[in-house]
Design a binder for these strands. Structure first.
Lengths: 356, 356
DNA sequence: CTCTGTGTTGTTAACGTTAACAGACAATGC
DNA sequence: GCATTGTCTGTTAACGTTAACAACACAGAG
């Protein structure tokens, strides 16, 4: 057994000794095997296998002044879309030998700068921010980070650096337009605590703008403080909507989870969706198309956001040129019209009992 | 601007020069400020602030022969429970200054060993495996990793090392017992492709064992190949259940997502849950209690699994003693009985229309 | 038979940090 | 007054790797 301090793991040196070559030859056998003479290569590879040698990437990074990690700052993994973006990032970054270091930031804004500093201590090659907002100190840290920073899931007014996202205001506007086009006039916006959710606020702004443009009442807004964007918030919220604005015929819910909570509560109360109340969500979650009635929503290419961010990152890491054309990407969104927001077609109504 | 190669970031050396002290004094100012004289400490801290110095953890790890990363191998982030476990891990590990390195392994089993080798290249202090199975080569890599390995979400027959999980067979058995106690005799197990899902298989085994013990037919099993554990699989699967075993009065679904798909399809077909067909799931997802009818399921303390794993890991990293008492933890589970599996109480039935 | 490449391997000096020890100096005990 | 202790800071040698360059052998060209 090697008396290495390195948790018993073999090092370049030990492999080199066993194979009877120099350190660099072993290093080359790992990274550029093609430059070695075949006999040497085989000898070294045998030694590597025998000792179960795994190169220490951190030491390699240090020596070569490169970095093989990308840090991802994410508020919560409980949101399907974020998980999909992470998948997209991961699958694309893997192709380039980059690892993902996770920083979930779902706590107080005040620790924000500290978290970012800690993560920068790992010397990541770049940072991907998923749907996150930062304190002014945090922004300062990011600006002096010296590595590419990619903000995703939004198109902020003052981007730090690169951006891959979509317009939340347009999402709000598109859903509102859809409902108005369906003949609705009394539309209530159902959201979470909007002061801590800039994106929700933008969607609300899109709603208000569109309602006003169409000459309708844009002031019908209900928020739920306790739960943030949960199914439960929708359940509580829709009760308030029905209470405060009983003539509401359609409600725009901040996310699909909120919409689901609303829909279930409607069912419990015997309020028919969409006949008594039309509902829309946002995000196109897995369950959304399966609900009865199926949920009208907006679909975001969450995986694509991750892939896009990864590509931009990779390009910016390898080439030093800042190709401005690709610095800001709007991936758009798609309004998916389903049963919850339109007069039901017979084919989608509850079917007859089976086997009769 | 410093001419450092390190992406413009300040190093110990630059801070030392600015403060007029040695490297070690700066290092101490960061890690053990209490040993320095107050005047020195302030001088150094001012220099650190001025240069925006952030220590390079990788270099520190290398020099001190420690590691500040923990690698997490996770099959998919799309499962709520996994995300919660990751949260638990993260929040507990953060207390000890440990970072999480993510390896999502949701691809072919053959790449398995390669992925593990790559992750070990980061020299993690430990490995947490969430709900994962490995090829024999992968197992070999793990065994020679030389760091603590914690398997979670299951209690495997042959653990590699530490374990934090629960018995899937008991889950299957408990749900089956519950349904039998409700008076059901014709129970169908609805699962995914079981050959690639050892845990699903165990739950199935628990089902079969219990059915047989109670003298009931244990052979009613329906699997769906296309989709794995999705809502859609439940939708497709329940159709097969009703088709192949029309006298079924209760169905045990592999997960809550499958159960939801089943429930929605039932609604579409006019099959009443639970009156015509009782349903159970597994996992207690966010939506489960909100469905109408609410879903009977098993609840796992997913966050707690993460916290537990983090504690074991931390103990094993800091003390070299292998405290055997805590090596294998069964966190258990809880059967949550809701409306989908019992004769409905009036209070939970669909309420009267609102405002009338 | 020297010259010039070409293909292959080795040597040295970093990368940014820390552990271990060494030294300087002041305060204390006898 | 002199050794002894304690407090603080500095020096040296690593950690495991890679970039850059040096060195060597051997082939073919002239």
């Amino acid at each position: 057994m090697p008396k290495s301090t390195n948790a018993g793991r073999a090092t370049l040196k030990e492999v080199a000794e066993l194979a009877g070559v120099s350190l660099m030859t072993v290093s080359r056998a790992v990274r550029h095997p093609e430059v070695l003479a075949e006999t040497t290569r085989k000898k070294v590879q045998a030694a590597i296998k025998k000792l179960n040698y795994i190169p220490d990437d951190a030491a390699g990074d240090l020596s070569s002044r490169k970095s093989t990690t990308v840090a991802v700052v994410i508020p919560s993994l409980h949101f399907e879309g974020h998980a999909r973006t992470l998948d997209g990032l991961s699958s694309e970054l893997r192709k380039h030998g980059l690892y993902i270091l996770i920083a979930d930031s779902f706590y107080s804004r005040s620790e924000d700068a500290e978290l970012l500093r800690r993560i920068l201590g790992r010397r990541p090659a770049g940072l991907v921010l998923i749907n996150s907002a930062h304190s002014s100190e945090g922004v300062e840290v990011l600006q002096s980070a010296g590595v590419p920073v990619i903000e995703t899931w939004d198109i902020p007014a003052n981007p730090l650096d690169s951006v891959v996202g979509f317009s939340h205001a347009e999402v709000g506007a598109a859903l509102t337009t859809h409902l108005i086009d369906q003949g609705h006039e009394y539309i209530t916006f159902l959201g979470g605590p909007l002061d801590t959710d800039p994106r929700g606020n933008e969607r609300l702004a899109g709603f208000k703008r569109t309602m006003t443009e169409r000459g309708l009442d844009a002031s019908r807004v209900v928020t739920v403080e306790q739960d943030h964007l949960t199914i439960n918030a929708g359940k509580i919220g829709i009760a308030r909507v029905l209470d405060r604005f009983p003539d509401t015929t359609a409600s725009i819910c901040l996310t699909d989870r909120v919409a689901m909570g609303a829909m279930m509560e409607c069912r419990r109360r015997g309020v028919s969706v969409p006949d008594d109340l039309a509902l829309t969500g946002h995000g196109d979650f897995e369950f959304s198309e399966h609900l009865v009635p199926s949920l009208t929503t907006t679909r975001i290419d969450a995986f694509g956001i991750g892939v896009h961010a990864a590509r931009i990152l990779h390009e910016r890491i390898t080439t030093n040129s800042m190709n401005d054309t690709e610095r800001h990407v709007d991936v758009g969104f798609e309004v998916v019209v389903r049963d919850s927001s339109q007069a039901m077609r017979p084919s989608t109504r509850v079917k007859q009992r089976l086997h009769d």
